[in-house]
Design a protein around this nucleic acid. Structure first.
Lengths: 191, 191
DNA sequence: CACCGTTGGCTAATCGGCTTAGCTTTAAGG
DNA sequence: CCTTAAAGCTAAGCCGATTAGCCAACGGTG
């Protein structure tokens, strides 16, 4: 019986593909094994279990998303950079509906690649905000605001939460435009 | 053997309590049954199954959230109403970590109460936005923006996605303040 | 080429959760 | 008191995850 020749990389990558097809919640070791032409328990030679697989998938997806955000913003600044990054963010979420939810998982401190990927993603946002003159606590607040807005939008969109017929692309553009306005006149409370 | 005397209401309500304790994902028919002092299959006399239970829980949570939002905004307007509603929203999510995620489920059109609850929640936001002079398509866009921001924030907060030590309450206040600014000068593209 | 150790794959078995089928018994109403 | 709808039960089957333990393929070494 010839070996299939799997390793952790191939397993995680196929999991990513499968997740995009069937959804993150429906990503199952059983389905993944059959997809890879292998019996389910064989996967344990490469991944500790279902939870560990999800965590590895999170690391992969976070790295991809961070790269997409960084790439989009490079060579741009201000509202231009913001729009490009926001578009890249939503584009990733739409094109990878199975991977995107995985990016919500907090990195395991022991997984250096995952931690680094998360820092790259936040760093990309920070860099854009520096273009608005936002630094320190303001940058932290603004980063949280931007992440919240983008994450919330793509999550609601994916869940089918926008019932009305109004064009969703346009709503997203308006959201990003409103964030642009916010960042240009960021509210400072007394501190 | 005396009867416990369950009905759909009591089952769903207990499910909500349990979900808040153990988390939405960990809400299981097995745990719910043992909590109610009943064998698992007995639950099927009151609920069609696990998915239907989640849907009923969604209806309950959506109604509660809508009520909280509406109550908070009553008698206020403008930024005052916005802040009160936003605080009520986050407060609900924090105090009901198991119910809140359920509110993401799209109502089944056949469940009139659920549909109505969703409309009440959106209607509450619409009402606040009217105080900013936002109506029609602008109100739709702004509603989506606000929902995105609030939902994104509480979701990331619950997931532990805010790593830095910066005070989360303050970040939320800043987010809401920035939305207030956005609504006061809502961007209109050429249409 | 033969040997051997590593390791990737397998089968078997257990466990937990969901679901269905079908039986029993409560309790409410005539 | 009798009937009957419904609330509860047990039994059984399915599916996914996990663990244990076996076997065979491949790579390196003599």
């Amino acid at each position: 019986m010839p070996r299939v020749g799997l390793n952790q990389q191939t397993v995680v990558r196929e999991a990513a593909r499968l997740a995009d097809e069937v959804g993150f919640q429906q990503l199952t070791l059983a389905a993944l094994a059959s997809r890879l032409g292998v019996a389910l328990p064989s996967l344990y030679k490469h991944v500790r279990g279902a939870d560990a697989l999800a965590q590895k998938l999170a690391a992969l997806a976070t790295a991809e998303l961070a790269t997409a955000m960084t790439t989009a913003a490079v060579g741009r600044s201000g509202g231009d950079a913001l729009r490009a990054m926001a578009d890249a963010y939503r584009d990733y979420a739409v094109r990878h509906p199975g991977r995107y939810p995985a990016t919500q998982r907090v990195p395991d401190p022991a997984d250096a690649e995952h931690v680094e990927a998360g820092e790259r993603a936040v760093g990309a946002i920070f860099a854009v905000l520096r273009g608005y003159g936002l630094t320190g606590d303001d940058a932290v607040d603004a980063t949280r605001a931007l992440r919240s807005a983008l994450h919330g939008f793509v999550t609601l969109e994916a869940a089918g939460g926008f019932g009305l017929p109004r064009d969703v692309d346009r709503s997203y553009r308006q959201l990003v435009a409103s964030m642009d306005i916010s960042f240009r006149s960021w509210p400072r409370d007394g501190r």
